[in-house]
Design a binder for these strands. Structure first.
Lengths: 143, 143
DNA sequence: TCCCGTTTCTTGACTCATTCAAGATTTCGC
DNA sequence: GCGAAATCTTGAATGAGTCAAGAAACGGGA
């Protein structure tokens, strides 16, 4: 993806096209599941003088527009990804915090209809799998 | 539940029985989904001089022992509940942050087997439904 | 019941992701 | 190009949660 594509995305969402936003979009695309600090670093490779606030603002705007998705497993700082709208979920490693994508086993929005919703109008179901990643399994075995 | 029951629970988990822990267990039981600050307040009604650190430590010990469950939806501070081990999930209101319990529609650990686990050993699947609670729906309609 | 080693609690300082605020810039419809 | 509105820069503030050192409490064994 080039900057032109990112601009398209922004315009399509009725967002103003600014250099920080384009750079943030690029950084998130190239760094799936990265935290804000990592994204800030990646953005500054393209745009050395962005403020961290601009990155926070951009991420918030992009999230609100549905262009990026914010994920934040317990005990972690906020992380972002651009793969949106395909009902995929995440596995998080309990020991190193690594995150990987997982497609839900049961087809379309499965088990994602609450049996008794307490009157809530539910618009999204989020699944997080907790476990141990291959590297940490190996590390534990060798202890 | 009385304090004797809480003491049983603690001993059953090989945890030392201390007054802060008993009070914390009581506070969490009576305040489902409460955040740490609320729990601290409730604990201090029973034990006026507990330090916040003791509450944090107790909550960590109880969580590690599986007696309480810690939940932390994106954008929220940590919350705790004592209903554990029954595979139930939560609905979170996007506008007011309220949380309610939900029993999973599909029987036992459904859709909770990732189709491709990337080599992770998964030990838990956590589901969070996002939506709008009845009160906030009413508030929005009347606008 | 008392003692002692270990765990837990108290106190108080500190971290750091995120937010807030005010003023300067930039974007984009006209 | 112009100007209003949105966005960005700078710098300070917030606050949940953590860290550390010493004091107190717990509970197994005498």
């Amino acid at each position: 993806m080039g900057n032109a594509d990112y601009e398209q995305l922004l315009r399509g969402a009725s967002l103003r096209v600014t250099r920080p936003r384009v750079a943030v979009l690029g950084a998130v695309t190239e760094n799936a599941h990265a935290d804000t600090e990592t994204i800030l670093g990646a953005v500054r490779e393209r745009l050395p003088d962005v403020s961290h606030q601009a990155v926070y603002d951009s991420l918030a705007a992009l999230s609100a527009a549905g262009i990026v998705r914010r994920i934040q497993p317990s005990g972690s700082v906020a992380r972002y990804e651009t793969r949106v709208g395909d009902n995929h979920h995440h596995v998080v490693c309990r020991s190193c915090g690594n995150i990987a994508d997982v497609d839900c086993a049961v087809g379309h929005t499965p088990c994602l209809t609450a049996s008794d919703d307490n009157g809530f109008v539910v618009d999204e179901a989020e699944v997080i799998y907790w476990g141990t990643c291959p590297q940490c399994q190996a590390a534990q075995r060798s202890k």
